[in-house]
Design a protein around this nucleic acid. Structure first.
Length: 152
DNA sequence: GCCAACGTTGGC
DNA sequence: GCCAACGTTGGC
């Protein structure tokens, strides 16, 4: 089982929306590295942090589970959609997505600044300058370390 | 294949 | 809103 950190802008879709909906397609991935990760490495049952980016308090807000295999991101075919991509064809889709399932909200937000303050987490992509991948893999030791921070 | 120009991400 | 970092595009 692998662990992931998945970013989203809370103004578009946030942890409370996922709590309400229970499961949701994680659409809009338009980066090849990220697409390859979900295609090749993501499995049903993997665990993920729900991270809020581009907002007042960037950080980890909740936990979720990967709930489907990768499948074509149909929003790429929709001319009216924000993430329409003329190059993605139905017979050979460029972009993929997975469904995520709500697990729980964290008891307290683990903010980006808190993550940065822990030397043990310095290898995490999310604390590194210029990291723009919307999904990154999290090492097991970092996953467990962060869950302990929640209890403090 | 190089690389300048442009667009996007995302912290601050 | 600013801007650094990075990805993509497209001319050559």
């Amino acid at each position: 089982m692998k662990f992931w950190l998945m970013k989203n802008e809370p103004e578009d879709y946030n942890i409370d929306d996922l709590k309400r909906d229970k499961t949701e397609p994680w659409d809009g991935i338009r980066n090849y590295q990220v697409r390859n990760m979900i295609r090749d490495d993501m499995k049903i049952g993997d665990q993920a942090f729900f991270y809020h980016s581009n907002c007042e308090i960037p950080g980890i807000y909740g936990l979720m589970t990967i709930n489907s295999k990768p499948y074509p991101d149909h929003t790429a075919f929709d001319k009216k959609a924000k993430y329409y991509d003329i190059k993605s064809k139905k017979e050979s889709p460029t972009w993929l997505m997975v469904d995520v399932k709500f697990k729980r909200k964290l008891k307290k937000i683990i903010t980006l600044s808190e993550l940065k303050s822990h030397k043990k987490l310095k290898d995490m992509r999310v604390v590194q300058k210029g990291n723009r991948l919307s999904i990154t893999e999290v090492q097991k030791k970092d996953w467990e370390y962060i869950l302990k921070l929640e209890e403090k």
